[in-house]
Design a protein around this nucleic acid. Structure first.
Length: 273
DNA sequence: AAGTCTGTCAACCGCGCGGCG
DNA sequence: GCGCCGCGCGGTTGACAGACT
């Protein structure tokens, strides 16, 4: 048994709104308000529309002070920061951006911002779906341009010569915020072949993949016990990095050494901000 | 010039939640 | 406590425009 439909589908118009419908709805709400009942509103306003459709049209397009058009770099930063913190809670993100709607932000994230952050040129077409970037410098400048982040916010991680199992930030002030590997594997798969990144936000990796460099980015967010990873080509993290859960209860981003003979020679650089 | 592909964005759909009787 | 109803949210779809072949 399904849920009863919210309106009589047969007698309801769907699809794009006409200017006449817009003005009817706007006029009615200006004069009477929504009345706290969207289901009854279309009938009262003389519209052959579903109440939900009216609500959506009003919230996303007709209500006063709606902002359309380009997002500012500041808005980009807010969206990214909140997304990294709370995930796809678009209504909450929208509440921090006056004049923007959750639908707007969701569309913007899915069509532009995500790609910007991952370094996919907007006009890239008909190319390998994997994310091959021209150079790490290009990635860096894209991130800087998009987010207006510059060193030392954008930190270069390099393998330490004396310890192939640990990558640290160049900036010693911030070291310890992000750890990749370490002397004491904090987790790990039962065979000890994985080590865990214990914290992270936006990561960009550059690998030696055969005879070419390969880069990809991922958003890693979490509080130490619950983790999420989004982005990157092919649905997020690519081998030899894997998302998984450890046997001590934590979920995280792991380096699976069984996928790669030598981590230190494969992973060239990792950026974090 | 025509056909095909891709990106964008408005709108729809289904579900969870809370209020109310 | 239970069921119904409406609201709000996030994910998905589809129309359209523009780029590309």
């Amino acid at each position: 048994m399904g849920r009863a439909p919210c309106c009589d589908k047969a007698n309801v118009k769907k699809g794009p709104w006409s200017p006449e419908e817009d003005s009817k709805l706007k006029e009615y709400i200006d004069k009477n308000g929504t009345g706290g009942n969207w289901i009854a509103l279309p009938h009262k306003a003389g519209l052959k529309r579903c109440g939900k459709s009216c609500r959506l049209r009003w919230l996303n397009y007709l209500r006063p002070n709606i902002k359309h058009g380009e997002f500012s770099p500041e808005e980009d930063r807010i969206i990214f920061t909140l997304f990294a913190t709370i995930g796809s809670r678009w209504s909450i993100i929208a509440s921090q951006l006056p004049g923007r709607t959750d639908n707007d932000i969701k569309n913007y994230w899915n069509t532009k911002l995500k790609k910007k952050l991952l370094g996919i040129p907007p006009t890239q077409r008909k190319q390998n779906q994997q994310l091959f970037l021209p150079s790490l410098q290009a990635t860096t400048s894209l991130l800087e341009e998009t987010l207006q982040i510059s060193p030392p916010d954008l930190l270069l991680l390099q393998p330490q010569a004396h310890n192939h199992h640990q990558y640290q930030m160049k900036d010693s002030v911030n070291s310890g915020v992000l750890m990749f590997g370490g002397h004491e594997p904090s987790c790990s798969s039962s065979d000890g072949s994985s080590t865990q990144i214990s914290y992270g936000k936006e990561l960009e990796f550059e690998f030696n993949a055969g005879d070419q460099n390969m880069s990809f980015g991922s958003y890693v967010y979490g509080d130490g016990s619950t983790w999420g990873v989004v982005g990157g080509g092919g649905g997020g993290v690519q081998p030899p990095l894997e998302v998984g859960s450890s046997n001590n209860g934590g979920n995280g981003l792991y380096w699976n050494e069984s996928n790669s003979a030598n981590r230190s020679s494969c992973l060239k650089n990792m950026y974090y901000y």
